[in-house]
Design a protein around this nucleic acid. Structure first.
Lengths: 210, 210
DNA sequence: GTCTATAAAGGGATAGAC
DNA sequence: GTCTATCCCTTTATAGAC
């Protein structure tokens, strides 16, 4: 469970090397197409060393996924975000989110979780709660604060958060999932801006004059 | 290439049995976790018979996917839809779409395409063009017609179609992809209705009084 | 804990008879 | 075209020396 600690000192770096190699290969090729040989070779250790720490391929996969599933929302928040006004926050979160969901890392992670969802049902729940679910709840809190200040009118913050993120994913998300190229940076930014404007049209107390 | 024809007569049913078994197993377990033995057994033939028709596992997979990728959009259209007024069409397409994207078949298909996207790049393009891309274009035509009649004001139909489908997918889509249970029928319908109302707020010439 | 070497099993693909 | 039986390689997992 919580033996991810193993003395963070000088040596005992090999377990981490193994996890790094596992992440790299599992996310690139998926569970089935990744062999323990390849992981050992990439980590620079022997296969027996891998098995000394992780008793099976499944356990190594689970350990890697548990470590990765928590890394998403931090990339979307960040302390400098809290100096912005509410609408500025919308714009900043939108700009980060479109980059985030189209990034190769995020796309690979979702692919692998989806591919293994039937074989490992709890994996999907862990991923959802720590990544999209967490982002959704955090963003809903932000919307609720904006509602309290009278800047937005949001009666159901979670639902509004869904609208915001859904519109940002657009069909870019599906396109990236199936391997089509992500839009260029400029298009991502344009899209994010347009979605923020649309979101404001939907949720600003006084409708925009347009 | 086009030798899917093999005399559609009485016998020669085995190639179809093989394709059916392949679809069932590939969509359930993915490419890597499905063995040719299992496909042969499920199809009720020997493995040699499978190889007599499909020279490799990859070829069988490709043949199955090519057959499946064209089957998605027809579930969303249908002749009875054309008797409805434009807003009625929106409601009907919305109701069908939420069921469609949360159905086990659709979820499995997208999972498998996503999982194999890096190994078989053209697969993703074929899938996209025949399924989400086609639906998007067809729906955009519908929006354009509604615009011509003055019922909606849609300056960029493809973009508006993205908004419509994105809002319908909401985060249900991600939840289903990672294996979390789909919402109940009633919730799906409620969601579809709310999205149609929101879409009308965004795209009706005279803003609703709300 | 880490290595080399190997056991044990599974799965893709084929040979040869019918 | 179809079957049975088999080849052969890959891959998971472990034994035993250091």
């Amino acid at each position: 469970m919580t033996d991810t600690l193993t003395v963070p000192g000088s040596r005992a770096a090999k377990p981490q090397q193994i996890l790094d190699a596992a992440r790299q290969l599992f996310l690139k090729d998926g569970f089935g197409a990744t062999s323990m040989d390849a992981i050992a070779k990439t980590a620079g250790v022997s296969k027996a060393t891998v098995y000394a720490r992780f008793s099976s391929k499944e356990e190594l996969f689970a350990a890697m996924m548990n470590a990765e599933c928590g890394r998403t929302w931090p990339e979307l928040s960040g302390s400098e975000l809290y100096n912005l006004d509410p609408v500025g926050k919308l714009r900043e979160v939108a700009a980060r989110y479109v980059r985030f969901i189209t990034s190769p890392y995020t796309v690979s992670l979702l692919r692998v979780v989806a591919a293994e969802a039937t074989r490992t049902p709890e994996l999907g729940r862990i991923f959802y709660e720590n990544a999209p679910g967490l982002g959704r709840r955090r963003f809903a809190e932000l919307l609720q604060a904006a509602d309290a200040k009278g800047i937005l009118r949001v009666s159901d913050p979670l639902r509004a958060a869904d609208h915001f993120f859904s519109l940002l994913r657009s069909d870019m998300h599906i396109r990236c999932l199936v391997g089509l190229p992500a839009p260029a940076e400029g298009e991502l930014d344009d899209h994010a801006r347009e979605v923020v404007e649309m979101f404001l049209r939907l949720y600003q107390p006084a409708p925009a004059s347009a």
